[in-house]
């Protein structure tokens, strides 16, 4: 079935570009691959019929957060040369650790039995804006408001941190 293949291809691409994030030597390329990964994840969301989350994912991650990363990279101008290198030992150790983590998790997932899946999934409308909005402003209104406080705290903190103590003028 064509959609099935599409989903698998999408999954493969997501994994591939996520791998490239870690493997690229050049930080800017890492950023580019991460943006691509986010796009692919957004595509996955669309396949899961979560359009609103997909577009918000795109706007927040690709449109805002990654721009920040790119910004910082450009301003600090971190090119390939001054990327610090890890020792081989660390690499091997972390590969082993990562591999075993993957192994454990996959083994655990394999045994999962999905107890109940929604009845009529084909016209699942839970990802549409109306539902989400309703939930967000009724059931989750308190966390929603708290998160805005978190945001303000983060903004203030970031501004204070990045502000230079005194302007350097010779």
């Amino acid at each position: 079935m064509s959609i099935e293949i599409l989903v698998y291809i999408l999954g493969g691409l997501t994994v591939g570009s996520a791998l490239m994030v870690v493997l690229s030597k050049h930080p800017i390329r890492s950023v580019m691959y991460l943006i691509l990964t986010f796009f692919l994840i957004s595509a996955n969301y669309i396949m899961l019929n979560a359009q609103f989350v997909a577009i918000v994912n795109m706007m927040v991650y690709a449109g805002a957060i990654m721009v920040l990363f790119l910004f910082v990279l450009m301003l600090l101008n971190l090119s390939k040369e001054n990327e610090p290198k890890s020792s081989l030992l660390v690499k091997i150790a972390s590969a082993l650790a990562g591999g075993s983590l993957l192994l454990v998790l996959v083994a655990a997932i394999k045994d999962i039995v999905v107890l109940q899946v929604a009845e009529k999934v084909t016209d699942n409308a839970s990802g549409l804006v109306q539902n989400l909005g309703h939930l967000l402003f009724t059931k989750y209104v308190l966390p929603f408001e708290v998160s805005s406080i978190l945001f303000i705290a983060a903004i203030v903190g970031a501004v204070l941190l990045a502000k230079r103590e005194s302007q350097i003028i010779e």
Partner: peptide, 28 residues
């Protein structure tokens, strides 16, 4: 999506909030 409940997606938003806050503070 598989369970037809929107609550999971709401959590995604909160994670995004955390991620954004983390990124700004971390980068600064």
């Amino acid at each position: 999506s598989y369970f037809g409940k929107a609550d999971g997606q709401i959590f995604v938003f909160f994670i995004m909030v955390v991620a954004a806050a983390e990124a700004t503070v971390g980068l600064s």
